[in-house]
């Protein structure tokens, strides 16, 4: 068999496929099935703190208990709906703001001469290498009531009363945009850097003004990059915990934070699981979109 000749003995090939595959199935796929199962059980005061779904009664009868109460609660209680709605809104608006800031950055990086391009790119990636938690924490010192921003604005006479930003929704937006900006810039850069410069030259030769050439050529061609960047910001931001927890007020409802509270404070594992399942369902559509885009990108690459 030709392919065997090329890729080595069958066992080597099987091992190379099987190891990462097996790992991800065991530690990534299987856990979700367990989450689904536990979202259908009830909490109880025991170890583990949830009721089993199936039970053998009299040796021959298998009792199956499926509890849809958690999902019913999520459907009825406005608190949870607000949390989902708010998470999607925060993630969506933050993605748009990231796009507005990130696009010009990616554009300028892609248009720079190679040496400067590498430095600019490095500067976008570098904050990503430092603790995310600490970077979010740094914002507290800037935006709190007696923080640096207010001190500066007060001493300049621009405001007379300190601004209340920390523990408001604005602080959450700020934190999300700040933390996820590199995830927008990098795919946009990758996309813009691959663009054929002769297209723009041709447009210029034909008399198109730069702004028109940008709107008619660069922008449409960068749509895959825009979509990828938006998804890379949007999907994790919907489930964000650290940012609303540290920067948002006690009333900043987001699903990630709610799951955390249900799990750690209320010890309601089944309810936390059903929140996770609904959140997953919500993210499937944007995820499939991202996956499709990526596959097309790789196919055109290889």
């Amino acid at each position: 068999m030709a392919s065997e000749n090329h890729h080595g003995p069958a066992w080597g090939r099987r091992l190379a496929i099987g190891l990462p595959y097996g790992w991800l199935v065991l530690f990534f796929l299987l856990p979700f099935l367990i989450v689904l199962r536990i979202s259908l059980s009830e909490p109880q005061l025991a170890q583990p703190p949830y009721t089993p779904l199936t039970e053998w009664v009299d040796d021959n009868n298998l009792d199956v208990h499926i509890n849809l109460g958690n999902y019913a609660l999520l459907g009825e209680d406005e608190l949870y709906q607000d949390a989902f709605f708010n998470s999607v809104r925060v993630a969506f608006i933050s993605s748009l703001v990231c796009l507005l800031i990130g696009y010009p950055m990616a554009y300028v990086i892609a248009a720079s001469p190679p040496r400067r391009r590498n430095i600019l790119l490095m500067l976008v990636i570098l904050p990503f290498w430092t603790s995310f938690l600490i970077r979010v924490y740094a914002w507290i010192g800037i935006i709190k009531t007696n923080g640096l921003l207010n001190e500066l604005l007060l001493s300049l006479g621009l405001i007379t009363e300190p601004l209340h930003i920390l523990y408001t929704p604005l602080a959450v937006y700020l934190g999300v945009v700040y933390s996820y900006l590199p995830f927008m810039v990098l795919p946009l850069y990758a996309n813009l850097a691959r663009m054929d410069p002769t297209l723009l030259e041709a447009a210029a030769d034909l008399g198109a003004r730069p702004i028109k050439a940008f709107l008619r050529i660069t922008l449409p061609l960068s749509i895959p990059g825009i979509l990828a960047g938006t998804m890379l910001v949007f999907i994790p931001a919907v489930g964000e915990f650290v940012i609303p927890d540290l920067l948002g007020g006690p009333d900043s409802l987001m699903v990630g934070r709610m799951m955390w509270t249900e799990f750690f404070s209320n010890k309601d594992w089944p309810l936390a699981s059903s929140l996770a399942i609904v959140l997953l369902g919500l993210l499937v559509v944007p995820f499939v979109a991202l996956q499709r885009w990526q596959r097309r990108y790789e196919d055109s690459d290889e």
Partner: peptide, 19 residues
């Protein structure tokens, strides 16, 4: 399976692995 962990919210991965 190689793409999903990149975007999956941490709270979901954490809960799923604990279970």
């Amino acid at each position: 399976l190689l793409t999903a962990p990149l975007v999956m919210p941490d709270v979901i991965i954490g809960l799923a692995l604990l279970l």
